[in-house]
Each structure stands twice: as structure tokens, then as C-alpha cells.
């Protein structure tokens, strides 16, 4: 997807769609505890936003992840998840991901649970989004390298 495709109508329609996609993804991520949704779905919707903006503007899109950054960020997302578990262990927990021992102390105890769940969902969202963009990059690059089919 080096160069954009589609005419005027597709461009205008997708341009309208992308900001709403991002806002909806953030909503799903932040309020995933109350409604169906969560990290995985938020990451997938965010990657739909990146995909749409790549369809419009190609490589010059503003909301875009380029090159090797996506591989690195996928690892970072997984690391955030594991690091939350390590945080609880540093706080003195008996087992992994015991949110009662988060280093930040908050008074009603399930507030700490909510914080830990939010951190973990951010990690999952980043990992899912970057993995999907990785796959898209790989498929598109393979198609561009092979050229036309005889």
C-alpha cells in the first residue's frame, strides 16, 4: 500500500470514518470493564483505523506506524503486561498479578484492581494492534516484491 487508491468519494468517506474509529477504540479500551469489549477488541479497532488511513494517504498518512517500529511496539505491549505482574511481585505479592499488592496504594482495595486491569488492557491493545499491522506489512511487501503474476 505504498500509493493510495480510490477516487474522491472513497477518500472523503474514509477521512470521515478514521477519527470516529479511533475515538470508538479508546472508548472500548477505557470502558471495557462496564460493557463488552476490552484490550483485544480495542487493539483490533485501532488497527482498522491505521488500515483505513493507509488506504487513503498511503505512506504519508498522519495516523500511521511505519517500518520496524511495529515489531518493536508489539514486544513492548507484551512487556507492559508482564511488567504489571512484576510490579505486584515487587510490592510483596504471593503470586503473579495479585493486584492487592500494587506499589501505588489506594484506599478502597478494588481501585488497585481497576488500575492493574487498565494497565494490562493497554498492553494487550498495543500488542494486538501492532501484530495486525505487522501482518499487513509483511503481506503487502511480499506482494510488492513479487511483482505481477504471469
Amino acid at each position: 500500500m505504498k500509493e493510495p487508491f480510490g477516487g474522491l468519494i472513497l477518500n472523503v468517506a474514509f477521512r470521515l470514518l478514521v477519527p470516529f474509529t479511533i475515538v470508538y477504540a479508546i472508548y472500548v479500551l477505557c470502558l471495557g470493564e462496564y460493557s463488552p469489549g476490552g484490550g483485544f477488541q480495542a487493539g483490533a479497532v485501532l488497527s482498522v483505523g491505521v488500515l483505513l488511513s493507509r488506504l487513503i494517504l498511503g505512506e504519508n498518512a498522519k495516523f500511521n506506524v511505519l517500518g520496524k517500529t511495529s515489531v518493536v511496539l508489539a514486544g513492548v505491549g507484551t512487556f507492559i503486561y508482564a511488567f504489571t505482574g512484576w510490579l505486584t511481585l515487587f510490592g510483596g505479592a504471593k503470586f503473579f498479578l495479585d493486584y492487592n499488592y500494587m506499589p501505588i496504594h489506594m484506599e478502597p482495595q478494588h481501585e488497585m484492581h481497576a488500575l492493574g486491569i487498565f494497565l494490562i488492557e493497554i498492553g494487550v491493545a498495543i500488542c494486538v494492534m501492532m501484530t495486525i499491522i505487522n501482518l499487513l506489512d509483511a503481506i503487502v511487501k511480499r506482494g510488492a516484491d513479487n511483482g505481477d503474476v504471469e
Binding site: M1, S47, I132, L136, I139, R142, G143, V149
Partner: peptide
């Protein structure tokens, strides 16, 4: 919806 885009994108190689 994402996997449909993937299938169509991978049609370039085959």
C-alpha cells in the same frame, strides 16, 4: 472485516 482485507491484499502474490 480485517481478515477480508488481508485475503484481498494477499491476492497480489497469487
Amino acid at each position: 472485516s480485517i481478515s477480508t482485507v488481508f485475503f484481498v491484499a494477499s491476492l497480489k502474490t497469487i
